[in-house]
Amino acid sequence: MSAELETVAHPDKESLAAESAERVLDVVVAAQDERGEASVVLTGGSMGTAVLAAVAASPRRDEVDWSRVDVWWSDERFVAGDSAERNCVQAAEAVDGALVLNPDRVHCMGSADDFGTAEDAAFDYRRELAAAADAEHRAAAFPRFDLALLGLGPDGHVASLFPGRPHVHEDDATVLGVQDSPKPPPVRVTMTLPMINSARRVWFLVAGADKAGAVAAVRAGAPLERTPGAGVRGTEETLLLVTDDCLPG
């Protein structure tokens, strides 16, 4: 079962980041109350990093035992490990040491320093996901995700799943190498839609009038071929957290 899409509007980027951060904290606290730990899938982009910065700055951050939070990424640029283009580097800069995470629970995708190809990095991430699933005694090839955060490109892409590319139609919940991203850098690693959609909650974080067309396409359920984001659904909740200028006047 998947959750229907719900749109929540905010007047500006600042309120979107602040309110989304409080939502994130609510989910993580609830997950730890339920089973002692939590697992989140992060995204890159300006809003993704703004929300992380707001989480780190929140006076409620100490409600969470950050050492018992698993952090994953839905996609990554296959570039040097210290490149500012990498989502995990941007995330680390956003929290600036304010969240005391267990390094063994921070699951960055492999970089071009670590692997010869994006396919090799994807294979390694699949292996890491499987090991986490085994530790949870799950039959699936990946662990439980309490929350997945996603951006949305003006073209309707999510993670590194772009319109017109075959990865959008992948049926398996897996991680793939991408060689031909139309947005630089062209080589990336990405989760597929079935893996993203395994998360209990999936939230888009979208700001700016340039995203209005993509937001409208997602809300209308446009074909995946044209708008990959239209295929996103969490198992319990799917939220489109947007600024007002993303919506019709």
Rank of each mutant, 00 (worst) to 15 (best):
S2N: 11
S2Y: 09
A3V: 14
L5F: 06
L5E: 02
S20P: 10
V24F: 14
E34D: 15
S39L: 02
T43H: 09
G44V: 13
S46E: 06
P59Y: 03
S67I: 01
R68D: 13
V71R: 04
W72T: 01
E76P: 05
R77W: 13
G81T: 06
D82F: 04
D82M: 04
A84M: 08
E85G: 10
R86L: 03
A92D: 13
L99G: 14
V100T: 13
D104T: 00
V106K: 00
H107Y: 12
T117H: 08
D120P: 03
A121M: 12
F123M: 12
A131K: 14
A132Q: 05
R138D: 02
A140R: 14
R144S: 01
G151H: 01
G156K: 00
S160Q: 12
G164P: 07
A173P: 09
T174I: 02
V175Y: 07
P184T: 08
P184F: 06
P184Y: 02
V189P: 10
T192P: 03
N197L: 04
S198P: 08
R200T: 03
V202I: 07
V215Y: 02
A220T: 02
E225C: 07
P228M: 04
V232Q: 03
T235G: 08
L239D: 12
L241T: 03
V242G: 10
D244I: 03
P248G: 00
